[in-house]
Each structure stands twice: as C-alpha cells, then as structure tokens.
Design a binder for these strands. Structure first.
Length: 580
DNA sequence: TTAGGGTTAG
C-alpha cells in the first residue's frame, strides 16, 4: 500500500489517475481499499488536471454496499464545485440520505451547503441547517461559517446574522463571511460597521483581521463609493502589512476606481508586481467607467502582448464597456469579433449599446437578430435607450412592444418611449403613453442621490424636503439657477414626462435628486473643494448640463457616479465629452 | 481533528 500512497501523491495528470484506477481494478483492490479509493475519486473530482465525469464514473462503479461516507463526500464535493452545483444537492438528498449507512458527516454537510451557497438557494440551505442541528454538528466553526455564508449568498441576512450570533466561537473567516455577505447584499454600511467593530475590538478572544477582512471591507467601500472610508481601510491595511497580497491590491484598485479616484487605482495597478487577470480586469473596467477607453484598450493590448494571461469573459466586458463609453465603435467591434471566449448575453448587450449610442441602430438591431439566444429585457432596454438618444420612433415602438410582451412593466420603459415621442414633438402619443402608465400600475424606481460630507452620507429624493437644511438647499438652488442662466443655461424639459406647463416642468427638473445633492455639496464644503455625488439611476440630460455649468460658475470639480459610469465635471466640461 | 471542509477582488 505504501507505494500506492506515494503514487497517489505524485499524480499530476489525468492519465496518472487512470493508470492507478486501472491498476486497482485489475488487482481487485478498488472495492476493498476504501480510503485509497475515495482519495483517488476526490483527486479526480477536484484537481485542476482532473475530470469530474471520470470521478463520478469511478464513484458509480463502486458497489453501493461498499461506498463509504468518504466516497460520497468526494462525489458531492466535486459536483458542488462544478458547473452544476444542484447535482450535488440531488445526489446528497435523493441518493445518499435515504440509505442507512453510510451516515453523512460534517464534510458531507459542508460540501452540500457549499452547493446551496453557489446556487444562492434558500430552501436547501434551511433544510441543511436543520439537518446539521439534528446531526449535532452545530459547534463546528467551519461548518457554521459555511452555513452563514450560504444564508448570506441566499440574501437571508437575518439568518446569517443569527448563525453568527449563536456561535460561541468565531474565527476570522466567520467574521469575513458576514462582512462580505453584508457588502454583497446591498448593505455596505453594515459591513463597514462590522469591520470597525472587529478592527477596534478590545476583546482578546476576537480574531485579528486578515487580508480577507480587508478585501471584504474594501468591497463595501467600493459599493458605497466612499473614498474616505476606503482610504481609511487602506491606511489600516498598510499599517498592519496587509496590503501586499494581490487580492488586496486588486480590491484596493477596484475601490479607488469606484470611488472616483481612478488615477490612484492606476498607480496601485502599476505598483503591483504580480498582476493577475483580475488586476487587469479591474483596472480596465475602472478606466472604462471613467470614459478612458483608449487607455483601457491600451492596457488590454499590453496584457495580450506582454503577459501569459488569457482574457476571460469579464475582460472582454470591461474592454467593450470602455469602447462604448468613449465612442470607440470600430475598435469595440474589432474586439468583439476577436473574442477568444464564447460571448454571453452581456457581451451582445454591450455591442448593442456600443452601436446604439453611436446612432448605428440598424446594425444594433441586426446584432440582436443574429444572437444565438433570445434577447432578455435588459438587452431590449439598451436598444430602447439608444432609440431615445437618437429619436427613432419606429424601432422604439417595436422594442416597447417586445418589452410589454415580456411582461416588463417598469417606469423606465414608458419614460424612454415617451421621450422618443417628445423628441419628435408627437404630443398625443406622449399622452397615450402616460395613460398606459396609469392603467398598467407601473412600478417606479425613485431617483436617489447621495453625497458624503465629513463621513456622513446625505440622501436626497426628487423634490424632497426631508433634509434638515432643506430651506438653505432650495435657496442655493435658486442662486445656482440665476448664476447658470447668466452663462446661457436653458432648461431641457424633454426629460420630464408629466403633462405640466413649462414653468412647472422647470420646477420638476430643478428638484431632481442630483441637483439637491449638488446644491447641498456647494453650501456644505469649502470653496474650491470637489463635490462627489452618487445616483442610483442614469443622470438626466438636464442635470448633466447643470453640473457642467456649476463646475464653471463655482470653479469646482464635480464627480457624479451614476448607474452606468462616472462623470467628472471641471471648468464647464465633462469627462464623458457629452457622449453617454 | 489518523485526509479532506469555511471567508476574500474583476
């Protein structure tokens, strides 16, 4: 047996595994040597040179009566990590559980819960949780952490929290799982609060944060768009020597790019010695979001030329996004045609966006028709957005019909269609759309803008007077209006849907949430300080014009992060060069 | 704990 052990450890190719398997079959050892068999199956199921199908075939060829818990574990582990995690759950629940022996152990549960986590599926997570309790495994820290992670990935944060608080022992991975769970579930402020609790904990039984903690905290800062918090986490990491790991470097550059400091992101990228594919993807996407498509393309070329890294689906998405936001249409098409991975719906969507923004709507529609799969709602909405930009009535009507047939009933669809009609001065059609909105119980997404002043996030809704300084804010808006009118500002009311008089339209416009946030930024920061605003939707054309004029009239740099990208206003111009 | 399981960037 000893020589078999050493052979197993030295397997580095699938053919080695197959030779060992053949040897075991010929000598009759395969069903007998339980430990060796299950390790061979596991190696084949999880090693990079392995083959999941071959591993499952080995597992299936083991007589049921001989299959031990470890064999099941190997098969379930392989399936859980594979392309179809649901198969792991099926094998576990429908084939293993009904058998008396072998009993599932902590490892079995661990792999099954991993599968549920990868599926973001709540029902199996709950069932596995109850099984875990019945099997008396609640005190297992790693298992509880896996469970916590599964609840978080299924966006059941209360349950994740409960698992966390019921654990008597938590190590650093437990904390990291909850921090990243909160960050990824749209609760970055809670993630940061938890990070602060851990990093300043006086309790010696609490673990010290590690690189994983930093990554999770930075991802929260990136989502929040809070440069101040992100830089604080960076300082903390640097002070403890936690800023050298390539994943931390990548999280750092992603954070800086998403907080508007793309040059700092680029500096970190350059100063990272061992760049991974994710490093390139993150910086290319960062540049893309800031409209710096030429630099994004340049780095993409550099990656192809001077590294061994192979671009993946995310790389292409980032490069296409860079071309789209910079109007580099032909370059984008060339990249799309040269893709070395199979394009997904998102890649097609990106190309439709690329062509659509540039006004090449016929070609964009041609791409939709040539796709090997059925277009989804997002793709049609992209095309509808392009129709709005270029006032294409016929195509807009066809696309709207598709969206309606697909059951998409969001306010955005109606607003876009209405804007297309308005751009063509077809007011009766505008009215028709408004009636349709009324009768279809349309879901509206309220526009929300936030700005952070000295660590406090201030939130604004369209026309809201909730803020304690709302009177000052509206006075500031009046003053801004006067100053930018002197610079030639004319309100662009074509983005206002409602059937109201021009003066009211102007009022509706000048109370857009981003304008409130900008006005508040102006009155609560020192003269000359930059103002940063985040918006949950795309910035409207009128607000874009106003931001440009404010940057000139008040000599301020204004950075707006909207749903799609960054706009950096300075001296009356925007970094997007009005192409968006 | 005589194998192996948990968290972490685009």
């Amino acid at each position: 047996m000893a020589h078999l052990e050493s052979l197993l450890q030295r397997c580095s190719k699938l053919s080695h595994i197959k030779q060992l398997h053949a040897h075991l079959l010929v000598t009759g050892l395969f069903p007998i040597s339980a430990s060796f068999r299950s390790r061979l199956i596991e190696l084949c199921a999880v090693a990079s040179f392995g083959d999941l199908h071959y591993a499952l075939a080995m597992f299936r060829s083991t007589p049921r009566s001989a299959a031990a818990t470890n064999d099941w574990n190997a098969a379930i582990r392989g399936l859980a990590a594979g392309p179809e995690p649901a198969a792991a759950l099926l094998l576990f629940a429908h084939e293993m559980l009904p058998l008396a022996p072998p009993r599932p152990d902590a490892l079995t549960l661990s792999f099954a819960i991993r599968a549920a986590a990868r599926l973001s599926a709540l029902p199996p997570t709950r069932q596995l949780h109850s099984l875990l309790l019945r099997l008396g495994l609640a005190a297992d820290v790693r298992l509880a952490t896996t469970l916590l992670d599964a609840y978080a990935k299924a966006t059941d944060l209360p349950s994740a929290h409960q698992v966390f608080s019921e654990m008597t022992l938590r190590d650093v991975a437990t904390w990291n799982a909850l921090i990243s769970g909160l960050a990824l579930s749209d609760r970055p402020p809670d993630a940061l609060a938890l990070f602060r609790r851990l990093s300043s904990s006086p309790d010696p039984s609490d673990p010290a944060p590690n690189d994983g903690t930093i990554v999770a905290a930075l991802s929260a800062c990136a989502q929040l768009g809070s440069l101040r918090d992100g830089a604080a986490v960076h300082d903390y990491a640097r002070a403890r020597g936690l800023d050298a790991d390539v994943r931390v470097r990548n999280a750092l550059l992603d954070m800086y790019a998403k907080c508007g400091a793309v040059d700092r992101a680029a500096a970190i990228f350059r100063a990272t010695p061992e760049k991974s594919l994710v490093s390139y993807n993150a910086i290319i996407m960062g540049l893309a979001l800031h409209g710096r498509g030429a630099e994004a393309l340049h780095l993409f070329d550099e990656m192809l030329r001077s590294t061994d890294l192979e671009p993946d689906a995310v790389t292409y998405l980032a490069v296409l996004c860079g071309c789209t936001h910079a109007g580099l249409v032909d370059e984008g098409l060339r990249v799309f045609r040269s893709m070395r991975v199979r394009p997904t719906m998102k890649h097609y969507g990106s190309v439709v966006d690329l062509l659509g923004r540039a006004g090449r709507l016929t070609e964009a529609y041609g791409v939709v028709e040539s796709m090997p799969f059925e277009p989804d709602v997002v793709l049609w909405q992209t095309l509808l957005g392009a129709c709005r930009t270029h006032g294409e009535v016929d195509l807009a009507e066809r696309v709207s019909q598709k969206l309606f047939e697909m059951g998409s009933n969001g306010c955005g669809n109606y607003v876009l269609l209405s804007n297309v009609y308005a751009a063509n001065r077809r007011w009766s059609d505008v009215g028709r759309v408004r009636e349709a909105m009324k009768s279809h119980d349309v879901k509206k997404i309220p526009g929300i803008s936030t700005t952070e002043i000295e660590g406090v996030v201030h939130t604004f809704y369209n026309g809201d007077k909730e803020h304690e300084r709302w009177r000052e804010i509206y006075r500031a808006l009046d003053e801004i209006g006067a100053r930018i009118k002197a610079l030639g500002y004319v309100p662009d009311t074509s983005n206002v849907l409602h059937d109201i008089g021009d003066e009211d339209k102007e009022n509706a416009l000048c109370q857009h949430s981003e304008k409130l946030a900008l006005a508040f930024g102006l009155i609560s920061t020192p003269v000359g300080a930059p103002i940063q605003v985040m918006k949950n939707l795309r910035i409207c054309g009128d607000c874009h014009t106003v931001a440009k004029l404010i940057s000139r009239a008040y000599d301020r740099v204004i950075i707006v992060r909207d749903l799609a990208r960054f706009h950096r206003f300075e001296g009356g111009d925007c970094s997007c060069r009005d192409y968006w």
